[in-house]
């Protein structure tokens, strides 16, 4: 039971990170119908920006807890903003000029952008792993004083921080999409871009906003990844990106709650598979579940079937 709880906690933490990245895939797919293959690398850039800011500001674990928290929140906000600029630039440079071109064109430039970002970071930052000392350590364990041989469940402050921030961001983002004029314009562009422009919506700007918010959320995931695992390199965007993309497809690509649910599920599958079977095959397990779900539900768990088109 304790062991199960432990995997559950690990899975939810991992799922939060995947979910945050998956939102960017699903929103971009929803609005312009393309898979932004560079999105995983935007996540990677986000984690490097966070690392650079932490080192530049000299944020260290020895600082008092309150100062450390404020500093980390500041780093989070700043890396969201800076990563958003990258997301905006990728769209502006590689996708917008090709709008109206044939469908595969932006897909190809997306792969190009992905490689360009990876190589850029590899050259600029070096290919070696970048470690970071654990900034937030400690947590709860149940039971606090386990009997010899008894398993004790660890719930770290870091995990609590990741899950709480993710839930808050997802709630905020869902409200933004469902309640505000910006969110309505976003959904209008998603459903009928031409009609949206006939109502005075600046479609290009709305698409930019989508990339910017997706990148900002990926930056949060990037910083969590850095703090949680304590080591990053220029290639982390590939695997995390593929997983998050899988999460988006599993949940139903184009669906916002689907991306969140898909991320959570992929995280849980990985954690439980590694915990009970073998961590060597955790990716195989995640992708197998994806294949099985797609066979029976081709549009994903929460995706809408195409027949609803009017």
């Amino acid at each position: 039971m304790e062991y199960f709880l432990q995997q559950l906690i690990n899975g939810i933490t991992l799922g939060s990170i995947y979910g945050l990245i998956a939102i960017g895939y699903t929103m971009v797919y929803g609005i312009i119908g393309m898979i932004n293959f560079a999105h995983g690398d935007i996540f990677m850039v986000g984690s490097f920006i966070a690392l650079a800011l932490i080192l530049m500001l000299g944020v260290a674990a020895s600082a008092p807890m309150a100062i450390l928290l404020v500093a980390l929140l500041g780093v989070l906000a700043l890396s969201m903003a800076l990563t958003a600029v990258w997301g905006w630039a990728v769209e502006r440079l590689a996708y917008r000029p090709l709008r109206g071109s044939f469908r595969l064109a932006p897909l190809i430039t997306a792969i190009g952008m992905s490689l360009a970002l990876q190589n850029f970071v590899q050259i600029a930052q070096g290919a070696r792993n970048k470690p970071l000392e654990p900034l937030i350590s400690g947590g709860f364990s149940f039971p606090a004083n386990p009997a010899p041989g008894q398993f004790s469940v660890q719930l770290s402050y870091m995990q609590i921080g990741i899950v709480v921030t993710t839930v808050a961001l997802m709630v905020g983002f869902s409200l933004l999409i469902s309640r505000t004029a910006l969110g309505r314009a976003q959904r209008a562009c998603e459903q009928d871009r031409k009609m949206a422009s006939l109502l005075g919506v600046d479609v290009d700007k709305t698409i930019s906003v989508t990339f910017v918010t997706g990148a900002a959320l990926a930056a949060v995931a990037g910083m969590f990844f850095l703090l949680y695992y304590g080591v990053i390199d220029f290639f982390i965007g590939f695997v995390a990106g593929v997983k998050a993309f899988t999460a988006a497809v599993l949940g139903g690509i184009g669906s916002l709650p689907g991306a969140m649910l898909g991320g959570l599920l992929i995280g849980l599958i990985e954690a439980f598979w590694s915990g009970y079977f073998s961590s060597d095959y955790k990716d195989v397990a995640a992708f197998s579940i994806l294949v099985i779900v797609l066979i029976f539900m081709p549009s994903g768990l929460l995706g809408r079937p195409e027949i609803e088109k009017v």
Partner: peptide, 18 residues
Amino acid sequence: RIFPRMTVLENLMMGAAV
């Protein structure tokens, strides 16, 4: 060209977007 997955009210709000 009604937005199919928006409510009637939201469609009208889109009309007032400008």
